[in-house]
């Protein structure tokens, strides 16, 4: 099940894409308040955003991005109905992809 929520809206020739992912984004520096043990790092390292199989933007992240990350970007040249694909890969090799269409 994909947990990436994507909204892509065309306005004045620019497409604004907003996405919301669900991920704990642990930095590896935080201590668990109950066990006092360091919570291992677990964060999204890379998000690749594509439109019609063309890479529009690649985001590289550290654990400094807030949990359940929000990402928004814009690009020109999109048309209503074009597919938008967003996929992330985290430091544990997990990956997830979400797809939506420009409205």
């Amino acid at each position: 099940m994909s947990d990436i929520k994507i909204r892509a809206k065309l306005k004045d020739g620019e497409t604004e894409v907003k996405c919301l992912m669900s991920h704990p984004m642990e930095t590896g520096l935080r201590k668990d308040s109950k066990t006092n043990e360091i919570v291992p790092a677990h964060f999204i390292q890379q998000v690749v955003c594509k439109s019609k199989d063309q890479v529009v933007m690649t985001a590289n992240w550290s654990g400094g991005v807030s949990r359940n990350p929000y990402l928004s970007f814009k690009f020109s040249g999109g048309e209503v109905g074009d597919p938008i694909e967003v996929s992330w890969t985290d430091n544990m090799g997990e990956t997830q992809t979400g797809v939506d269409k420009i409205t």
Binding site: V55, Y70, S76
Partner: peptide
């Protein structure tokens, strides 16, 4: 954020 050719220089996150 590495921007592709069509990307507008705009990013927003938390």
């Amino acid at each position: 954020f590495d921007l592709g050719e069509s990307a507008v220089p705009f990013v927003s996150t938390r």
